[in-house]
Design a protein around this nucleic acid. Structure first.
Lengths: 168, 168
DNA sequence: GTAGCGTAGTTGAGCGCTTGACTATTCCGC
DNA sequence: GCGGAATAGTCAAGCGCTCAACTACGCTAC
């Protein structure tokens, strides 16, 4: 089951120290459901966005982050952090977006090492075109499927995990 | 906010038909928490598995699926379906696993078009070595962070979404 | 039997991502 | 000031994935 090779099932009989803490049957079900649903949802949204607009979700995220700053620009490193991206990945991605004319790099006055990524008008227009596609996907495949209680639970789960995974 | 360009916030005032159904503030929070937490969790587990064992999670999943069949073999197509993988991707992946001697392809008696992917003893051993690493990651970064109620909610959410995304 | 269509699986080009090494600049202690 | 460490960002090689085209076999009808 995705995480098991040996035992499996049963109500977790407190393994000795050093022994793997295998998942019991309930945990297996929960883990598998989470793993598969997140994977299918991400694949689906990414594919729909890609088909409709030609940009992958990671690039979309860059445009979103830039669009939300007051002057539509941000230091490369901060942009990378906000996009949960490595610096290398962001650097490559910004190069691609620059080729399309959606972002441009600009030297940073306060720090000679630094660069600003600036969202161009064309980039903003591209984002405005892509956003309705994306939000419709999120509605259809996520929120339309859930009750208000489930949405609340989703937020609670996500925020709980974020406190552990990204304590920033 | 990841899915927004224009409006934002407020209790969703029933948009006219054709208008994007933007997310309200609560939905934004829920969506962002879900998106970021799933991404961070997957990245983390994949990276830890990769560092410790040299195999990416998608390859691990192939080995798991094969190990769970009675005779450790499966038709390529069915394996692809179970791994939520395209046939092309599975074909490439099996080729890599074959180079390591963990899987081999075998002709299928009943169907001249078909092939069986067979888990070798070396492959099973590799899986046995990787599984404790992986399950420990799932424990540490997921189950150890959650209450029993949250685990139940996670399963409920996942299964609800699966019914929509993968009605198989 | 053979034409035509559907299914099983593979392949290669192109892209995004990771890793690790690299340059350039700033910060800090003495 | 000056030397060394830390920070900002880039780049190239290698890998996994996608897409679309392709081969090969089976299935059905006539």
């Amino acid at each position: 089951m995705t995480t098991q090779v040996s035992p499996g099932a049963g109500p977790a009989p407190e393994p000795p120290v050093g022994e793997p803490r295998w998942l019991d049957a309930e945990e297996q079900r929960a883990w598998r459901a989470w793993l598969y649903s997140t994977q299918l949802l991400n694949d689906r949204l990414d594919r729909e966005l890609m088909r409709a607009t030609g940009i992958p979700h990671t690039y979309y995220e860059i445009l979103v982050q830039l669009s939300e700053t007051p002057d539509r620009q941000m230091r490369m490193s901060e942009l990378a952090d906000r996009c949960l991206s490595s610096r290398s990945r962001l650097s490559h991605a910004v190069s691609r977006l620059e080729e399309r004319g959606w972002v441009r790099r600009q030297e940073c006055a306060e720090d000679g090492r630094g660069l600003l990524a600036v969202l161009t008008d064309e980039g903003f227009a591209a984002l405005e075109a892509a956003a309705p596609i994306h939000v419709e996907g999120v509605r259809t495949h996520l929120f339309d499927q859930l009750t208000l209680e489930q949405v609340a639970a989703m937020r609670d789960l996500g925020e709980t995990l974020l406190r552990h995974l990204d304590p920033s």
